[in-house]
Amino acid sequence: MEVSREEILHIANLANLNLDENEIDKYILNLQDILNFANVVNNAPIDGLSETIGATENYNVFRKDEVKEYKDIEGLLQNAPEQDENMFKIPKVIN
């Protein structure tokens, strides 16, 4: 399994990560190793088997769509890197 430089940069972009030159080379090798190993799934006798998406048989678990007020605003904001008047603060998005 060959992974190209373009591919790893594309994937890092999708994942919102920057990679420096050393990391690019390292992750290409790591990814190739792991994918070569992961290719054994192609030998598994899975013809005609459906996909399992979770560990239980449950499919949809519904509840009433009710608004519940969460009162601990301070608790929620205490971890914000930057905040102002009970809001999360971010850089200006629209010029």
Binding site: V41, A44, I46, L49, S50, E51
Partner: peptide, 9 residues
Amino acid sequence: KKAQQVRTL
């Protein structure tokens, strides 16, 4: 997708 089928297996 294959991994999820293997999960069934």
